[in-house]
Design a protein around this nucleic acid. Sequence first.
DNA 1: TACGATTTGTTCGTATGTATC
DNA 2: GGATACATACGAACAAATCGT
Lengths: 75, 75
Amino acid sequence: MTGYVPTYRVILNDLRKSIASGQLKPGDKLPTLSELADKYDCALGTARRALEILLETGEIIGKQGKGTYVAEKKL
Amino acid sequence: MTGYVPTYRVILNDLRKSIASGQLKPGDKLPTLSELADKYDCALGTARRALEILLETGEIIGKQGKGTYVAEKKL
DNA sequence: TACGATTTGTTCGTATGTATC
DNA sequence: GGATACATACGAACAAATCGT
C-alpha cells in the first residue's frame, strides 16, 4: 500500500525535514517557487500550496518581492 | 486604511467565528464549496482555500463525497 | 448492478497586483 | 523602468468517494 502522496505534500514533507535537520536554519532563505516547481517538476501553484501551509503554521515567513525565510524558533 | 482582506481570509474568519460561537458545533456539516462560493460570490478554488487552512489546522474534517464537518474538540 | 448527481481532493494554466532589487 | 518573487483570484480538468434511483 503506502498510498499515494500528493506532490504538494511531498514538497511540504521535504521542506519540513530540511528545517528539522538543521539543513535549513532560522533566517535562511528557501528556494523560490520557480526553483521548487522546477525541482519537483510541478506547476508553480502546486509548489505554492506547500509554502502556504508552512506560512499558515508560522514555520516560514513570506516577504513579497524578496523570498520566503525559515521562521525564528519560538519558545 | 483598515487594510484589504482577501476573500479566502474573510471566509476563514467567518467560519472560525461560527465555530467559536457555537453556531457550528462539533460534528456539524459545513456549507459545501458551491454554497460558500455562492454566498461569498467567489470561485470554488477561493472558497476551498479557506477550508484547506481549517483542514490543515484540524479544525474541520473533510470527507470525500460527503462534506466537511466541524472537528471534535481535542483536549 | 449500473448510472448519474453531488462533493471533496489534486493539478494545471493564466491573469493581475504588490513589493523588492 | 525592468526583472524577480511572493500574493490573490479565476477557470478548467480529472480523480475518488458517496448517495439515490
